[in-house]
Amino acid sequence: MTATYAFALSAAHEAASAQHYPQGTLFVVATPIGNLADISLRALHVLALADAIACEDTRHTQALLRAYGIDKAPAQLLAVHQHNEAQAAHLVVERLQQGQRIAYASDAGTPAISDPGARLVAAVRAAGLAVVPLPGASSITAALSVAGIVTPGAQDSGFVFAGFLPAKAAEREAAVQGLAGEPRAVVLLEAPHRIEALARALAVLGKRPVTVARELTKQFEEIATVDAADLPQWFMNGPQRTRGEFVLVLHSAVVAAESGSEQRILRLLLSELPLKTAVRLAADITGASRNVLYDAALALKKDESGG
Rank of each mutant, 00 (worst) to 15 (best):
R59M: 11
H45M: 03
L26T: 12
A54F: 05
D51N: 13
A12L: 06
V28R: 01
A16L: 01
V29R: 02
G34K: 09
I53E: 03
E56H: 09
S40P: 01
H13A: 09
A50L: 11
R59G: 04
E14P: 06
I39D: 03
L26K: 08
V28Y: 09
A43C: 00
A52R: 14
Y68A: 02
L44M: 09
D38R: 03
L41C: 12
A52D: 01
Q62G: 08
H45N: 05
P22Q: 12
S10C: 13
A63N: 14
A63I: 02
G69A: 07
Q19N: 14
G69Q: 08
G69H: 11
A15K: 15
A12R: 11
L36R: 00
A15S: 13
L49P: 01
P32E: 02
L47A: 09
D51E: 10
I70A: 11
V28I: 15
I39K: 13
A11R: 15
Y68C: 08
H20R: 14
H13G: 11
A12D: 01
G34E: 08
S10A: 14
A48K: 08
T58N: 09
T61G: 01
Q62N: 12
P22V: 07
V46Y: 00
P22D: 12
A16E: 13
T31N: 05
S40K: 04
A11W: 01
D51W: 14
L64E: 02
R66M: 10
C55L: 00
I70R: 13
A48C: 03
V28F: 11
L36Y: 10
R42A: 05
N35R: 03
L49I: 00
L36N: 06
Q23T: 14
A54N: 06
F27P: 05
A54T: 10
S10Q: 15
A12Y: 05
A43R: 05
H13T: 00
H45L: 00
A43E: 00
L47M: 11
S10T: 14
H13D: 01
E56L: 13
C55S: 03
Y21D: 04
L26H: 08
H20D: 14
R59V: 04
A18R: 11
I53D: 02
A48M: 00
I33K: 08
N35P: 01
L41Y: 15
A37S: 13
A15D: 07
Q23N: 13
Q23C: 13
G69E: 10
D71T: 15
P32S: 04
A63C: 11
P22K: 09
A12P: 07
A16T: 06
A43W: 00
T58I: 07
